[in-house]
């Protein structure tokens, strides 16, 4: 006796085909190769950076993920950032002897060297995760640490850190030159900036 296929079986077969198609789609969709390459070896680098100002920021960071499949996670922690600024002499420091024992100094403009999180200051206030299905990963909070570092850099610029750094750098150079018994020191602005002179002695 010939048997008929019931509608229930048809639904089962269609459902199975849909699942296979979804699986094939997931595999094909992720087949785009991703390559990351970088060259960086352990190396010793020479610097000439005079750090003259440091600002410490305390930051609070909150991260939350709502995930239907793997469960929710959330995290709150604080940490400190150090923003340092000064003058990079490797970009050109000019010292010239002028008549009458005057020394002319031309320094590069001040810049921010680092806006870096101090990992040892991390204070984890609370954490909720699904240890097996959805644990907290570095990728959950590191982008926010980086973004806050950029925000702190901008805040430091807005607070006038560069002018503070530059005046401290001038003072430092002046004090060093005075060890060599130079008393008349004048500073001139670097090329490309608004002209202005400061002097001592």
């Amino acid at each position: 006796m010939a048997s008929r296929i019931s509608s229930f079986e048809v639904i089962l077969i269609i459902l199975a085909l849909v699942l296979v198609a979804a699986g094939v789609f997931l595999i094909i969709d992720s087949r785009e190769p991703v390559r990351h390459t970088e060259v960086m070896e352990q190396r010793l680098r020479e610097l000439r950076q005079l750090k003259t100002v440091s600002q410490t920021y305390r930051s609070v960071i909150y991260v939350e993920e709502k995930n239907f499949w793997r469960g929710n996670k959330m995290l709150l922690f604080t940490l400190e950032y150090n923003v340092t600024a000064g003058v990079d002499f490797s970009k050109g420091l000019e010292i010239r002897e002028l008549p009458n024992e005057v020394i002319q100094v031309r320094m590069p403009t001040a810049e921010i060297f680092t806006s870096d999180a101090d990992e040892t200051s991390i204070n984890q206030m609370f954490l909720r995760e699904q240890p097996f299905l959805n644990p907290i990963r570095m990728g959950d909070y590191m982008p926010q640490i980086i973004a806050q570092g950029e925000a702190n850099r901008q805040a430091a610029l807005d607070s006038g850190i560069l002018s503070h750094a530059e005046s401290n750098a001038r003072l430092a150079v002046m004090r060093v030159l005075k060890l060599g018994k130079f008393d008349n020191i004048v500073f001139s602005s670097p090329p490309g900036t608004v002209s202005g002179e400061a002097s001592d002695g």
Binding site: L50, Y57, E64, Q144
Partner: peptide, 24 residues
């Protein structure tokens, strides 16, 4: 995903450190 953060400036220090080498 949701994330938020804010900062407060706690300290400003003057220093005079001439950094001349870095090991990376």
């Amino acid at each position: 995903k949701t994330s938020a953060s804010w900062s407060i400036l706690e300290e400003i220090r003057s220093l005079n450190e001439l950094e001349t080498a870095a090991y990376e």
